[in-house]
């Protein structure tokens, strides 16, 4: 029984944000236009939440292997914005097993370099991972 997911870390710099915008075709100015973003309640550029979310999938794969995402469900909230040059780390702790044999629920998170949660939620995986 794996009590903790392996931790995965990434620096979210401007290049990463712009690359993610291009990959997803999401050029919302809150992600790519510093002048626009400064005038919003966010007060500046924020990264796409889904960029950091990938670290949770990476944690799952690093812990259980290539096939672990099959049958998985992930339910999260973006609790705090990720700023340019933040260093974010994903991880998770086992909180529930069953009812099916081998089924597990992990409380997952992504935290910034100050230890503040930027993503929080639950990851459920199927049996026999």
């Amino acid at each position: 029984m794996t009590a903790e997911l392996a931790r995965c870390t990434k620096r979210v710099d401007r290049q990463a944000i712009r690359l993610y915008a291009a990959i997803t075709d999401d050029f919302n100015p809150i992600h790519v236009d510093p002048e626009f973003a400064a005038k919003t309640p966010m007060g500046g550029i924020i990264a796409h939440g889904m960029l950091s979310l990938n670290l949770i999938w990476q944690s799952l794969r690093a812990t259980f292997g290539d096939k672990a995402a099959k049958g998985a469900s992930l339910d999260i909230r973006f609790t705090r914005p990720v700023r340019e040059d933040d260093v974010v780390t994903a991880g998770g702790e086992l909180v529930e097993t069953g009812p099916a044999e081998g089924a597990r629920k992990y409380r997952v998170w992504v935290r910034n370099q100050r230890g503040e949660a930027v993503i929080e939620g639950d990851l459920r995986i199927r049996a026999n991972q």
Binding site: I23, T24, D25, D26, N28, P29, I30, F36, T40, M42, H48, G49, M50, L53, N54, A69, K70, G71, A72, S73, L74, D75, I76, R77, F78
Partner: peptide, 30 residues
């Protein structure tokens, strides 16, 4: 997320600037 967000960008357009993503659920069958 890429497949989902590209579809979101294509289907839900034009959007106002400044939308913020608050929560997300994914279920992967395969």
């Amino acid at each position: 997320a890429v497949v989902t967000m590209r579809a979101y960008s294509e289907v839900l357009t034009p959007r106002p600037p400044g939308n913020v993503h608050g929560a997300q659920r994914f279920e992967i069958e395969r």
